[in-house]
Computed example of a mutant assay.
Amino acid sequence: MGEPLHRLLAKDAALPVPGIYDGLSARLVELAGFEAAFLSGACLSFARFGRPDMGLVSAAEVAETVAVIRERTDLPLIVDMDTGFGNALNVRRTVTTFERAGASALQMEDQLMPKRCGHMQGKQVISSGEMVGKIHAALDARRSRDTLIFARTDALDVHGFDDAMERAERYLEAGADAIFIEAPKTAEQMRMIGAQFGHRTPLIHNLVEGGHSPVQTLEELQALHYRLALFPASLLHLFIPTAQNMLAELRHSGHLQAMRSQMIDLADVNGLLGADELLAASREYQYE
């Protein structure tokens, strides 16, 4: 079992957390030596359903994915639960379901359903009072204090920086275990966020390739007093052009010999995923 997430966030360092979306991506992140993983709602929508991040994935589909990933890794798992999939009562059920499935932390945002990617235009947000009620519902529903509740506001792009900061204050007062002000526009805004909140609670930031982040590195985030650096879509952002190149080559030449050195073997995939360990385990149940 990995180190509990609350202890990782208490350290004086920014924690890099790659985004995952299935058992294979979880396994890769664990083998690479990361200390936590983030089940990105966007990447789940992208990879499993071939859809944009516009609130099309259901709570049941996320819970099923959490359970699949938890079966494969003991890493602390931060789960994107979007808006909580409804009102405060829906939030209670979502937290109960996701915690039971194996979530270590649940990230909830104050967008209006159906939500959309935090770096897309046209977002809408609920009132801060409604979000405060949803945070209380989430806190009441969790069975373990070790299950963390992260509160995200998307209000900066909708109502401006001051409103986002006021919301963050209210969400922290409501009991959120970490604060996430999505898509700051400048490094100065991030400096102000860090100055106001960084010494009081873990701060979260999205590092999205092609997004609107004014910073790009862990070192920059740490200097601004942020503690959690999400790389939510980096695996897919690399996988997609690689897959496109491979498919274009296969379509053009009818074979993949030119790309063979870039590809992993089937035997290596089985080794990566623990086939030998499973075969050894199966022999324990063989009786004469």
Rank of each mutant, 00 (worst) to 15 (best):
N87G: 03
L89D: 07
L89W: 06
L89G: 02
V91L: 00
V91P: 01
T94L: 00
T94G: 01
T94V: 01
T94R: 02
V95W: 03
T96F: 13
T96R: 14
T97I: 15
T97D: 15
T97S: 15
F98T: 07
F98N: 03
F98D: 02
R100Q: 15
G102F: 02
A103W: 02
A105G: 08
A105S: 12
A105M: 07
A105H: 06
L106Q: 07
L106K: 10
Q107V: 14
M108C: 08
M108W: 06
E109K: 01
E109Q: 08
D110V: 12
D110W: 08
D110E: 12
D110H: 09
D110Q: 12
Q111M: 10
Q111W: 07
M113N: 13
P114H: 10
P114F: 05
K115V: 13
K115T: 13
G118I: 09
G118D: 05
H119F: 05
H119A: 09
H119N: 09
H119C: 10
Q121V: 12
Q121Y: 08
Q121W: 04
G122L: 11
G122A: 01
K123V: 10
Q124K: 11
V125P: 03
V125C: 14
V125I: 15
V125R: 02
I126A: 00
I126K: 04
S128N: 01
S128Y: 00
G129F: 03
G129R: 13
G129H: 11
E130W: 05
E130V: 06
M131Y: 09
M131G: 01
V132C: 00
G133E: 10
K134C: 00
H136P: 04
A137H: 06
A138P: 05
L139G: 03
D140C: 11
D140V: 09
A141V: 04
A141W: 00
R142V: 05
R143C: 05
R143Q: 15
R143E: 10
S144Q: 15
D146F: 08
D146G: 11
T147E: 03
I149Y: 06
F150A: 01
F150R: 05
F150Y: 10
F150T: 02
A151I: 12
R152D: 11
D154E: 07
D157V: 13
D157S: 15
V158R: 03
V158K: 06
H159F: 14
G160Q: 02
A164W: 04
A164Q: 07
A164F: 06
A164G: 07
E166L: 13
E166K: 08
R167I: 08
R167L: 06
A168F: 01
R170F: 06
